[in-house]
Amino acid sequence: MEPSYYLVLSAMLFTIGAVGFMVRRNAIVAFMCVELMLNACNLALVTFSHAWGLLDGQVASFFVMVVAAAEVVVGLAIIVSIYRTRRSASVDDANLLKF
């Protein structure tokens, strides 16, 4: 197995996530992009774990999954409450606080 292929894929996924976060306006889509970035990290962790022949990278990816799940709970709670208030989940509409 050549780890660099997986690392390149992980970097691409991470970049897609980061770019998506910056260009998309819907809070849910932006948040999904963050999840994509976390999963790109998971891929990198598992790849390195395999390359080193150690297990802790794979265990780490479980930790990351649990953390991501907890983050979804909190994030969706906030996004839904904003949506119910404003009837919009666009991050451009949340613009009362500035400068």
């Binding site: 980061a18 976060f21 809070a27 932006a30 948040f31 963050v34 970035m37 983050e71 909190v74 994030g75 906030i78 996004i79 409450s81 904003i82 208030t85 991050v91 949340a94 613009n95 009362l96 606080l97």
Partner: peptide, 15 residues
């Protein structure tokens, strides 16, 4: 304002 603060903190913090 408070909800907006929560949303901004959450999205940027997650990033």
């Amino acid at each position: 304002l408070s909800q907006e603060a929560g949303l901004k903190y959450f999205l940027l913090g997650a990033l």
